[in-house]
Every structure is written in C-alpha cells, then in structure tokens.
Design a protein around this nucleic acid. Sequence first.
DNA 1: GCAAGTAGTGAATCATTATTCATTCTTTGT
DNA 2: ACAAAGAATGAATAATGATTCACTACTTGC
Lengths: 209, 209
Amino acid sequence: MAYRETEKMRQRKAEARNKIIESTWECVAEGGFRSARVTRIAGLAGVATGTLYRHFESREDLFAEIFRLATQREVDKVAEALSVPGSAVERLDSALRKFAQRALKGPMKAWALIAEPVDPKVEEERLVYRKAYASLFEQAIRDGIAEGCLPEQNPRLSSTCLVGAISESLVGPLSPTQTAAAPGTDNHQDELVNAIVCFCIRGLTDSRS
Amino acid sequence: MAYRETEKMRQRKAEARNKIIESTWECVAEGGFRSARVTRIAGLAGVATGTLYRHFESREDLFAEIFRLATQREVDKVAEALSVPGSAVERLDSALRKFAQRALKGPMKAWALIAEPVDPKVEEERLVYRKAYASLFEQAIRDGIAEGCLPEQNPRLSSTCLVGAISESLVGPLSPTQTAAAPGTDNHQDELVNAIVCFCIRGLTDSRS
DNA sequence: GCAAGTAGTGAATCATTATTCATTCTTTGT
DNA sequence: ACAAAGAATGAATAATGATTCACTACTTGC
C-alpha cells in the first residue's frame, strides 16, 4: 500500500476549492453568471480547467453552489435584522432596509442574485432563496398580527409581495446598463430605499380593515 | 425590366410572416422561449428554416418581436381596465385584477413574459414592458393623489412596487414545474388574486400619513 | 416563352464553450 | 528509492443549434 489521503492533502484540496469559489465569485461580480467562463475562472484560481471538474460536477453545479453561498450570507443578514427586539413593524422596516441597502452597495452581485437570467439549476436555487426571504418575512408578519400591530392578512402572500416589490424596485437601478450609466448618489439611494420601504410597510399595515 | 414586387406578393409574404409569428407563439406557449427551436417553428409554419431568416434578422430578433406583440396585448388590456370611469383606487383595483387573472389563465405565456430567463434582446423588451405597466399605474396613482383618495407618495416608485409585488406573487404559481404539479382551482385562484390586490391597494392607500 | 429578378429551400457549416481523458506530476508508506 | 495511488493538466473533443448560401422554383412584364 502507498498513497492514502492525509490531512495535509485534504487541506490543500479544500484550499483549491475555496480559490475556485472565490474566483468564480469575482467573475460573477464583474459581469454576472452568463459571462463567467470556466477557463477564466480556472485561470484566476491558478488551476487548470480540468481541475475545476475535480471539485465540481459541472459549471452549472459550481454556479449553483456559488449562488447558495452568496445567498446564505444575504438571508442571514436579513434574519439578523429581524431578530432584534422591537415591534414586528419596526423589525420588518429594518430588514427591508437592510435588504435594499446591501443590494445597492453591490449592484452587479445583487443583479446576478435577483434578476439575471440564469440556467435552470441556478434558477432553482433562486426560488429557494426567494422562499427563504419570504419565510422570514412571513414569520415576522405572523408575529405582527399576533401582537396586533398588523391587520389580519395572508402572511405568505404578503411576504411574497414584499419580496417582489423590493426586488422589482431594485432591478432598474441594478441592471448592468443602468448601473454603468448612472451610479446614483448616496442621497438618491437613501430616498429610493425610503420610498420602497414606505410602500411595503403601508402594504402590510393599512389602519383600516 | 421584369419582376417588380406586386401587391399580391406583398400579401403572400405578410401571410408567411404571420404564420411564423403564430407558430412561434405556439411554441412559446408550450415551453417558453428557451425551448423554442427555429426548426420546429419553421416546421409548424410550413416553411423552410431559411425562409424564417428572410423575415427576421435572427432567432433573437424574432423572439423580441413576438415578445413585443404579446406584451402590447397585455398592456392594452390593463390600460383598458384603467380607463373606465370611477375613482383612481377603483380603477387600479380592476387593473391589477385584470393583470393577475390574465396571467393565471395562460400560465406558460405569462411565465415567459414575466419570469423566464431570456436572451439579452428579449430582456430589453421585457424592461420596456415593465416600464409600460409602471407608467400606466403611475398615471393612475397621480390621479389618485390629485383626487385626494391616495396619500402623497412617489408615484413612480409605488407603481414599480405594484408591478413587482404582483409579478412575484404570480411567479410561484406560474413556474412550469408548479403549474404541472398543481393546476389550482378557480376558487384558489380568486383567493390569490384577492390577497395580492389587497396588499397592493393597501400599499397605496394607507389612511394614516 | 423569355429574361430579369425575387422568394424559398434545407443540408452543410460554423461558432461557441463546456467537458473529457490520456498523460504527467505528487504524495505517501515502506 | 520505489511502487502504488491520487491529483493536476490542458489540448483535443463533443454537442448543440443557429445561421448561411448555392441552388431551385417562382413571378413579373414584355
């Protein structure tokens, strides 16, 4: 007997894997998924194209993984914003704000996650991601109804509407052409975020009904 | 001198063009843009693949054209719903309802128009289409503010939120896998439409502020 | 029916990249 | 140092479908 996988090797492989993930993310942040070429990714990671396939089943799988990771970060941030003390409405307000602000800070990444046309496997991940957001919001809405600070409503539907409203409002500002043309001032962005959050909160809270 | 294009020929060509448009739409209604093959489209239209290229610059251009046409119909319907007499809120309510109902009646078509990942040229058309909706809603919101039945707000942003909320709520129910699994009863759909419209109208009308 | 021009054809081509795999290079335990 | 096993390589391949284009079949006006 001879070669047996050792800790050192395991680490080295993990490192390579991370490098690949990193360079993929770099490519995506540059021009989205569609324009990220495996050759470029491998090149950036300092490995041969073939090596990439020792770590990931396929380009699509690699992308799905990247998507999952990036997404997890975002969802965690929103979850965090929702888990501070305060009324449900306050918590929702801060979570929506967080979502929008983060998106505007990394427009290309946000566009890739929210709106870029992607391959089926990645699209699947996107649905998961949107559901994750919706679930978070949904729970907060339920809390709000229980607390009495939100009127009776279908929490699932309302949360989906939140995700849609905020995503759509950001697509314009995020889309690559738009971004290139008009970077947008901080002030402008704050205003945008305010208006979006305003609409969303109103959508949930109407004091009639 | 000899051959000169005549009315008869012009008509015949127009007919062929229409046939191509029709069969493209048929393919799209079946499985979206991505899976629509030019060979199949040509076959259905009863022409050779090459002929298709005498009528359209490229597959993408053909798709963009189809998209534009389909979109125009939808936008017109919503415009119609907005142009009846009544308060702005009533008119918006009926327009949102129309939008949702039409989408649920032709799920695959709606999915292709609203959410399917598409090529750049088509995506461009999609932005135009969304803007068209947003503009319609925007005007109605302005009217509402003037009438006093809606509070002060950023009409452009609010209208974008409307489009987003309604699109997103429909994506789940529309996506091909979902549709195949659960056709959804008429009753269920009515409920869905109600909840969406409810959220949207609340988003616009909150009686505080 | 003929000449001049246009429309239609569809098999062959092309372009694009992801993926493979025969080969070379490393690691490991003895 | 050696044999056994795995890891890395990257040029060659493969697959996919849109697009082309040399050719045939029409139309037209005389």
